[in-house]
Design a protein around this nucleic acid. Structure first.
Lengths: 109, 109
DNA sequence: ACTATTAATCGTAATATTGCGATATAATAA
DNA sequence: TTATTATATCGCAATATTACGATTAATAGT
């Protein structure tokens, strides 16, 4: 096997998993932090700042983009990446309602 | 290659990535929802309810446990799994401060 | 047109994940 | 002790991810 059985889960579970998977790598977390904080939205700059090869950063950026977490705008020779606000908001909401399901006081064991 | 370069990232980035990775699978999201909502904390029950083999569920439970998101208590022949409140709270905080970094109005492009 | 600059893609090797049947382990009950 | 029940682990095949060098494509400047 080795293939996730997406068909047995709800769309919401699958969608949330996809976004979380895109987040679930230290390099991609670092990339997002750079994009947000330092306004370093250029692939080459990120490559230098994070110490990963340009091809690697480009691949991570693609994953973040595919998951809908960032968007890219062509600026001359380079591309400026920034947060995709709509999906970011969606992720925040879905995660919040998921994480807040837990009532810390009521544990079953 | 094929090995994540954890040494070039901060502890916080790595720790957050580990917890998110544990969350980033529809089966594990479903398991957590079951544990939280339906109080179905038994491996066998989860196997029946989710439609995945017992070995598969056990593996997912192990991953959730290793990431610190759940804890298991032996109850006779079976094991009752429930949320690990401390780490759950930690995840909530770390995620919140990360997701709230974004100022939706100020996009660089 | 030519050159420099930047990002994307290709190809590849190493490693990790996913899912399951089969088996092993542990605790309870008879 | 033996049987029963429930979970964990092993072994495996299929698939996915990670990282990077090399190459390609696209734009800007001369």
């Amino acid at each position: 096997m080795g293939l996730t059985k997406t068909e047995i889960f709800t769309d919401e579970q699958n969608r949330l998993a996809v976004m979380l998977k895109a987040l679930a790598h230290p390099a991609r977390i670092a990339i997002l932090q750079q994009i947000i904080n330092a306004n370093a939205c250029i692939c080459g700059d990120l490559s230098i700042e994070l110490g990963l090869a340009q091809a690697t950063i480009s691949q991570h950026l693609k994953e973040l983009k595919t998951a809908g977490l960032i968007q890219g705008t062509i600026e001359g020779v380079s591309v400026c990446y920034c947060i995709e606000p709509k999906n970011w908001e969606l992720l925040k909401q879905q995660l919040n309602s998921f994480l807040n399901l837990v009532d810390v006081k009521a544990n079953c064991c």
